[in-house]
Design a protein around this nucleic acid. Structure first.
Lengths: 343, 343
DNA sequence: GGTTAGCACTCATCTAACCAGAGTGCTAAC
DNA sequence: GTTAGCACTCTGGTTAGATGAGTGCTAACC
């Protein structure tokens, strides 16, 4: 347990380091208006904080920088929660005032806004189709062997996939099935679609349809992969402006990882159910390349279920308070907007 | 007009510089097996070539590097055209052997293959819907104010857009129009769609439909913006491996430009009709950030009309011969594949 | 006992000086 | 026309010293 004075000093060091990116010395802390102690006293406390693991020293004669544990403590106990500047609130308000009417467009645009506002990299996870429901299904023949399957969800997203059709299946059969599907499965959540396809329609189809097996296979692949969420990345190059990444080799690893969509998907997957804000510091991200990065994520949701995430990636030395404030507001407003659209 | 010997020397210098990234001196040229002259002779020729503007010298006691004019000459007259290594041919062949059945997927995948194979950045321009024709049109109501418009093209691409519906238009009216559209305008090239909409259907619709004006506006926006082509970028971080870009500030400008999709669209737009290969060196790209980059592009086409482009961006000191060889083959094979699919 | 002034010590960073090496241009000889 | 020889130039790397920020420790102070 830290004393009040230790908290105050840790807080001051993190704040200073966040803005300056330089190790901070006892003298500069002591000179701050709200600190009533001499450099020597601060030094003693700093030595203690280092022993406790909250600070570290790049080399003997340098100031201190926060350790991962130090950042963790800062984020968990010290971050001031008031930090949403009015200018930023205005930007967000202006963003929601624009009339955009497709969910995906909103998310994409939000990514840009976020990276511009924060000067970090924004990573947004597009809405999870999984929890939205079927609005309309269509199978449109392109030639005698292939067709394009189109799924429209209740949120107006359109997913499409090209499938190949076995020659023994006739056009009229396909039409029958698609009609059946549309009459019985509309408003079923996509994640239940396949199971309901079998349970509700299986019997009926087996009766009316000649090539049941083959047809089912086609539908299976048509409905299959549409659960892939999209990643919207913006401001990746903002990483290059951070002084800790002025070395090309280090930043290459980071940018390389940002090109790996599957990795990002995993990283942003909404933490099991919770809708709170997550801060992952350094190696908590489980990737060597992100050892000196922090990722802050929040979720937006519909009907209480997380639909997707919005995240900001920056150096561990990142403006936690400001970013958390912005993400909090934006995720809340996105959720509100979705609720307003689709209730 | 350059003498044969001058060409030979210029060629040797460009080749050397491309692989080493260091200014090349007279001695190293003279030592090459195929050159029968002493360093002194080479030096004289190099001085001449510098006077003519084909070479430049970073400083007095350094070797020479090719100038923009030098690269231009190299590309226009000296590039050896045989350079498609068998290993690379195999990779491309393997790529086309995979069964991918959606045009967009192929392009996206091709982008990765290209950047991996070349270790440069690949920029591909997705197929231009413009010259494909309408396969199916649909307007699907989401709620009483909005609907999603879906356009399926003859190449199986699905474009969708959310539009808002004025309250005075009824569902049945909309259905009527959509049916009309599907019966009369299927197989019309998308770029003629709007004009034919007016010329062929205008009269008939005006007769049958109550709110003609409003409905036309809806259709207009529904058909409007679907001409946007997609950019597929891969290997942007390969730029960071080039020694000339080891300075973060320089490379930041380049990567920033790569995030600007509209700029890339303009840059890759198939050069007026031609299907040949284009090489733009340094400032020929019209962007300060690309002053030390070269962009090589080729097009793929359907029915003799360019559908999109594939391009490689690298430093001006780039392996022109190899890249041009690869792009040539890939664009040819892409075109062949499209012709095979959609004829 | 907690706090602070004083001081010796450490270590990264900056500068200047120097050296080695690569490459040139010129001259004179072949 | 070609080449050997040589003086000259400029970069890059290394070393040595000076600078200064910051520390830890001790002893004095309240």
């Amino acid at each position: 347990m830290l004393t009040e004075r230790q908290k105050m000093i840790l807080n001051a060091i993190v704040d200073d380091y966040i803005t300056s990116a330089e190790p901070v010395g006892s003298r500069s802390i002591s000179k701050r208006g709200d600190v009533g102690y001499s450099p020597a006293t601060i030094r003693n406390e700093m030595a203690d904080l280092e022993d406790l693991g909250y600070l570290e020293q790049p080399h003997t004669s340098a100031g201190r920088i926060p350790s991962h544990k130090g950042y963790r403590y800062y984020v968990d106990h010290l971050v001031p929660w008031n930090s949403a500047e009015s200018a930023e609130l205005d930007t967000i308000r202006a963003f929601f005032a624009e009339k955009l009417n497709a969910t995906e467009q909103v998310i994409q645009h939000a990514a840009m806004i976020l990276s511009n506002m924060t000067n970090y990299t924004s990573i947004l996870l597009g809405p999870e189709v999984f929890h939205t429901s079927l609005r309309h299904f269509q199978l449109l023949p392109l030639d005698d062997r292939t067709a394009v399957a189109i799924i429209v969800t209740s949120t107006g997203q359109v997913e499409n996939k090209t499938v190949s059709i076995p020659p023994e299946i006739s056009l009229s059969e396909m039409e029958k099935v698609v009609n059946l599907l549309n009459s019985k499965l509309v408003n079923v959540p996509l994640y239940k679609l396949k199971s309901q396809l079998y349970s509700e329609l299986g019997e009926e189809m087996q009766r009316h349809i000649a090539h049941y097996e083959e047809l089912m296979k086609v539908l299976d692949t048509a409905l299959e992969s549409d659960h892939e969420q999209r990643i919207y990345l913006s401001g990746a190059t903002n990483m290059l402006t951070q002084p800790e990444f002025k070395d090309v080799d280090k930043v290459k690893d980071i940018l390389d990882l940002l090109e790996e969509t599957p990795t990002l998907l995993k990283m942003l997957a909404p933490a099991s159910g919770g809708t709170g804000m997550q801060v992952r510091i350094g190696m908590e991200n489980k990737h060597e390349a992100f050892a000196n990065c922090s990722l802050i994520t929040a979720t937006y949701s519909l009907d209480g279920k997380a639909l997707g995430s919005i995240g900001i990636l920056g150096p561990t030395r990142m403006e936690y308070a400001r970013v958390m404030g912005i993400l909090g507001i934006l995720s809340r407003d996105l959720t509100a907007m979705l609720a307003h659209w689709y209730k």
